[in-house]
């Protein structure tokens, strides 16, 4: 008798409690994404601008344009290379911090050292690679003086190599942090139990540490994938404009005020990133791992 009215009354506070987050998400996420999707079906007319319409022309244009495919291929290539390198670096750095540094204070100190690159702006961090990698930069002049090479290495700067270097430099921390987090929650006696059962150091890492760090690896991979896929700035600066990314296409369209095609580009990119994210979450059930 009393349960029905109480249930009804208790709904209001619940809605109120959920309201702020819902409003924030709606205003800053759902509405903009919906707008982008809507605009992607509009028509672009030279000199006039955006004309409301429902056309698939933008998508057909993009998908039939070989440049789009080239850009995506190059972006995916960078993503995979950077993912592999940041994973190896992130895993070992986190492993070292969690399992080899005995003092918590030193571990925290070293962890802070990992964040040092983030104390300056993105641009400075990238520009500072030039005196290192350039034709007359540190590496080239050192190698020349040592007589290892007699011509400066041209592929160090303004190349795919320098793009990867910059990405790794910028994004490794995003791999370290989540892996560190999941490793820190591994009970140290699990490692000893594995050693007790005759596992070698590699056996312990492969059979215990790696499977129990899966959540962190998945989250780190997600960060790195979205960051690299969404980047056009690093790739433009570090390749000297020789390489582009999927996002560069959007940037170009925006400069020509071709908002519909930029929007269509954005939608395609969004779908690709979501597909990658979905496949990562298929491999690792993050929700299950987080409650473990």
């Amino acid at each position: 008798m009393t349960s029905a009215p109480t249930a009804k009354r208790s709904m209001l506070p619940t809605y109120l409690q959920v309201a702020p987050l819902t409003i924030v998400l709606a205003l800053f996420f759902i509405v903009p994404v919906a707008l982008v999707v809507v605009v992607s079906f509009f028509r672009y007319q030279m000199l006039v601008g955006i004309v409301p319409d429902f056309t698939l022309k933008n998508y057909i244009d993009l998908l039939s344009n070989p440049t789009t495919w080239t850009l995506y291929r190059s972006t995916l290539k960078f993503t995979l290379i950077v993912l592999a390198i940041t994973f190896v670096l992130g895993f070992w750095i986190a492993y070292f911090l969690v399992f080899h540094v005995r003092s918590l204070l030193i571990a925290i100190g070293l962890f802070l050292v990992c964040t040092v690159p983030f104390w300056t702006s993105n641009i400075i961090r990238m520009i500072s690679w030039r005196p290192v990698l350039g034709t007359e930069g540190l590496i080239n002049s050192a190698l020349l003086k040592m007589g290892v090479i007699d011509q400066p290495l041209q592929w160090l700067l303004y190349s795919d190599f320098s793009v990867v270097v910059a990405y790794v430099h910028l994004f490794t921390l995003f791999m370290i942090v989540p892996i560190f987090n999941s490793m820190a929650r591994i009970d140290k006696s699990l490692l000893e139990a594995a050693v007790d059962a005759g596992a070698t150091r590699w056996g312990v890492i492969w059979n215990v540490v790696l499977p129990l760090s899966k959540t962190g690896i998945a989250l780190g991979a997600l960060f790195v994938v979205t960051l690299v896929m969404g980047d056009f700035f690093v790739v433009t600066v570090m390749s000297g404009g020789l390489s582009g990314s999927a996002t560069s296409g959007i940037f170009n369209d925006l400069q020509f005020l071709n908002y519909p095609r930029a929007a269509a580009s954005a939608v395609i990119l969004l779908i690709v990133v979501l597909l990658i994210a979905a496949s990562i979450f298929r491999l690792v059930d993050v929700r299950k791992e987080l409650v473990r």
């Binding site: 006696s189 594995a194 050693v195 007790d196 059962a197 129990l212």
Partner: peptide, 18 residues
Amino acid sequence: APVERGTAMMFQSYALFP
């Protein structure tokens, strides 16, 4: 190593691989 010693340890927390 523990296996060479012929010892086996049962941990306080049991340390089962989750």
